[in-house]
């Protein structure tokens, strides 16, 4: 699971190794990546919202 999270973080950042890509595509299943991606997107939303609320004060 931690591999998937790392890969999704790499995707959000936009940089990834070729070797990790091959492993992800060979072992990982698409559905897992998509759901983890959506959850981490929501996490990102909450995080940025918190930063915005704090910054607005």
């Amino acid at each position: 699971m931690w591999e998937v999270v790392k890969s999704v973080l790499a995707a959000f950042f936009g940089v990834q190794k070729e070797q990790r890509r091959c492993e992800d595509f060979q072992h990982g299943r698409a559905a897992v990546f998509i759901t983890v991606g959506l959850l981490m997107a929501m996490l990102l939303v909450v995080l940025v919202a918190l930063v915005a609320v704090v910054a607005a004060r």
């Binding site: 936009g14 990834q16 070729e18 991606g37 959506l38 997107a41 990102l44």
Partner: peptide
């Protein structure tokens, strides 16, 4: 150069573009 980064970045856009 950086084929994997391109693949992962475009995949991330599928979700991040909604925010």
């Amino acid at each position: 150069f950086g084929y994997a980064s391109m693949v992962y970045a475009t995949a991330a856009i599928a979700i991040l573009s909604f925010l």
